[in-house]
Design a protein around this nucleic acid. Structure first.
Lengths: 243, 243
DNA sequence: GAGTGGTCTAGACCACCTT
DNA sequence: AGGTGGTCTAGACCACTCG
């Protein structure tokens, strides 16, 4: 097997992994403090911390800033190409969803969106920021950028519900095609704070540009998922022959 | 801006980020040694290392085991739903692709695939392991698990080319639908070694189950991408109305 | 106020890569 | 052989959370 020599760190990882997969530690529960683990394994906090980071990268545990380490729950299976509503999707997987609206305001279009959305320079967009939780744990930070002309009075609507549904009911807009990018990156700024993640923690960023049925761009949304909270699943049909 | 107090680590990150985005350090080049950076910023290796890990999570730099830190090149834009060949895809983005076949052998079906692929317990599958590079940097480790009945003599074929093309030309098999999962996780074992990643480094795992045009499962493939080397891009058409 | 993780110091030895 | 990152020691103080 060409097994690398077992380091102390690897031993800690293995011991914890076993506890985690054998359900001795179950979803949502808190791990002992780093200092306690260091005593337990007769080593230092730095070594323990390294081991915990490995398990975090695997998605078995997660951190909440200055609160401690917790056991991850199963990932939400999510298809960004389907238009299913977050609350319905979560409920279908026997979990409890919640949405909190963080802000809704008019902002100058960020530079990268000006070209992506084919806007005039210095355009204004309506930005809606929301934080979504599963089983009381915040897992998804979203920013929607709307073309304001299509969405008068959006600020007076209930934004805790599905925006897709609202677009259709209130504004008569239905999605046509959309394009999305999925990119593993690191949490920064507001997204990190809202998700109670340390700056630089790995996340999955999904950026989507939505067109209506006439092919006009109507909005763009950016989802920042905790990397251990989600698994993307997509069914695809056969295409034209490979090139 | 509610800026968190600037720590020493944050200062290092900012300084390096600036150098990286201003192209003072360009793709592929090597960063100074950790000890050198520690001197430069008048701090310890551990602090420097932490900062480097942040930039790694962002995808701006990457590590090669015991060789050093390097500046990332632009991510490959990849659509796993399209059947385009790796070499063609890479060439279209002005990069140079290479494929190395690591192994091709008959193995006992891994437990998780037995259920996923609806196999009889203790079935055997043909496993092909390959390592793919862009601009001489290994970025993608793949394992294909084939139903052996459909692929006689596969071991004698040239496996460095596109397997999709080979399936069709040699075996008359064409893909119908497929289902794929995209999951941010950590590198382990053979995949970590081949990609010269430390155990536990973040990667993007894409698992795909492929059906032929008659709806039979013909193979399953597992791609392990270096997390900073790829960006998934998918175009989707409108679906039936949201539930 | 006690406990937690976040950050940091100032070193050390080892395993591996490069020359 | 010399340089690199990988791992580790044995502490320290700070910022934040929670009861």
């Amino acid at each position: 097997m060409n097994e690398p020599r077992t380091t102390q760190g690897a031993a800690i990882i293995q011991a914890l992994r076993q506890q985690l997969t054998s359900q001795a530690l179950t979803g949502g529960s808190k791990l002992p403090a780093e200092r306690e683990l260091a005593d337990l394994f007769d080593t230092t906090r730095i070594t323990v911390k390294e081991a915990l980071h490995h398990l975090e990268a695997e998605g078995l545990i997660y951190r909440e800033e200055r609160r401690g380490w917790f056991v991850s729950r199963p990932r939400l299976v999510y298809n960004p190409a389907s238009r299913s509503h977050f609350h319905a999707l979560v409920a279908a997987q026997q979990r409890v969803a919640a949405t909190r609206v963080l802000s809704c305001e008019s902002v100058l279009a960020p530079a990268e969106l000006v070209s992506e959305m084919a806007l005039a320079p210095l355009s204004r967009l309506t930005r809606i920021c929301r934080l979504r939780s599963i089983d009381r744990r915040p897992v998804l930070y979203t920013e929607h950028y709307l073309i304001p002309e299509y969405f008068p009075d959006i600020g007076e609507q209930d934004l805790g519900q599905s925006l897709t549904g609202l677009y259709q009911r209130r504004y008569g807009l239905r999605y046509g095609r959309s394009r999305f990018d999925i990119c593993p990156t690191a949490a920064r700024g507001e997204a990190a704070r809202s998700l109670s993640l340390a700056e630089g923690s790995p996340v999955l960023a999904i950026t989507r540009i939505n067109y209506d049925q006439q092919g006009r761009i109507i909005d763009c949304d950016r989802e920042i998922w905790r990397h251990d909270a989600v698994r993307i699943r997509i069914d695809s049909q056969a295409r034209a022959a490979a090139s």
